[in-house]
Design a protein around this nucleic acid. Structure first.
Ligand SMILES: [Zn+2]
Ligand SMILES: [Zn+2]
Ligand SMILES: [Zn+2]
Ligand SMILES: [Zn+2]
Lengths: 134, 134
DNA sequence: AGTCGTGACGTTATTACATTACATAATTCA
DNA sequence: TGAATTATGTAATGTAATAACGTCACGACT
C-alpha cells in the first residue's frame, strides 16, 4: 500500500481540474479554468503541479507540455510508465510494458548509465480516431 | 543507401552549429551563436531545424526542448530511436533497442493505436559523471 | 518574354510555457 | 514559544515557439 498525501487547497484545485478534463491540460489552461476560484498566477499552478508530480498523482507529458492525472492512483512503486497519446482526440493511455522496461534497463546497465527519469511517449491516433479518418 | 539532401545556407549554418556543439542546443542558443552570420530571428532557426529534422539529420529532444545532430547520418530507415541524456555533462547517446521496439509495437498493435512519432528519452548521469559524483 | 507555382527567406509581433525574486502567512515540532 | 520548514501571493522576467505578413529566386509551361 501507500498513503494518500494531504493536498493543500491549491493542489486540490489543480488536481480536480486535471481530473475533470477529457484531455491533457497545459499549465496555462489550468490557470484559465481556475480563475476566480483562488488561482490567479501561473506560479500557483506550477507549484501545485510540481507537488502533485512528486506525489505521483500527476504526470507531465513532455512532448505536449501538458499534464494528466495518473491512471494508477499514483501507485507506480518504481516502474516508469509509457503513454500513448491521440493527436486527434487527446485521449491518453498510460501503460507499463515489461519488454520495454527490460530493453531500457539492459541498455542502461550495459552502458553504466544511471537513469533518473524516463520519458516514453507515443504520439499518433487512437483506434476510434484512426477508424474515423478512413 | 540514401541520398544526401542539399542544404540551404541557413540549414547549413544551423547544422554546423549543432555539429560543433558538445551538447544539445536550444533554438535560441543556436540563434545566439549564429548572430552576425546571417541569422537574425528565431524563425530562421526554427525553419531550418524543421527541415533538418525532416531530413533525419537532426533530432529534437522533447524533455530538453533542444536539438542534436543524428548519430546515424540520418539513416534510420524507420526505426524509432532512444536517447540517454546526461544531465550533468550533456552527453547524448542515441541507440536502438529491439526489445523496446517490440514492446512498443506489440502494445500499439494490441490496442489498435497508430503511432506517428515515438519519444524515448532517459535522463540521468553518464558513467563518467556518475563516477565523479561519489 | 511572360505567367505561374513552389519553396525558401525576412521581419515584426504575438502567443505559449516556465522561472526568478522577494515578501508574507501557516505549519511543524523541539 | 520560537526556530525551521513549507506553502502562498504577486510582479516581473526569461525562454520557447508560432502567426501573419510580404518578398525573392527558380524552374515549368504558354
Ligand atoms: Zn501513473
Ligand atoms: Zn483519438
Ligand atoms: Zn538518429
Ligand atoms: Zn555526463
Amino acid at each position: 500500500m501507500h498513503v494518500e498525501p494531504v493536498l493543500t487547497a491549491n493542489q486540490q484545485l489543480v488536481f480536480k481540474a486535471l481530473g475533470d478534463a477529457e484531455a491533457p491540460l497545459s499549465a496555462y489552461t489550468i490557470l484559465e479554468r481556475l480563475q476566480g476560484k483562488g488561482i490567479k498566477a501561473p506560479l500557483q499552478v506550477y507549484r501545485a503541479l510540481e507537488k502533485l508530480i512528486d506525489f505521483g498523482l500527476v504526470h507531465r507529458l513532455e512532448s505536449l507540455n501538458a499534464f494528466v492525472v495518473c491512471d494508477h492512483h499514483g501507485d507506480h512503486t518504481q516502474h516508469p510508465v509509457a503513454f500513448a497519446i491521440c493527436d486527434s482526440c487527446g485521449l491518453v493511455a498510460e501503460f507499463v510494458d515489461s519488454s520495454v522496461q527490460e530493453g531500457l534497463s539492459r541498455w542502461t546497465t550495459g552502458h553504466a548509465f544511471r537513469p533518473k527519469r524516463v520519458t516514453v511517449e507515443l504520439r499518433g491516433l487512437c483506434e476510434t480516431c484512426d477508424g474515423a479518418s478512413k
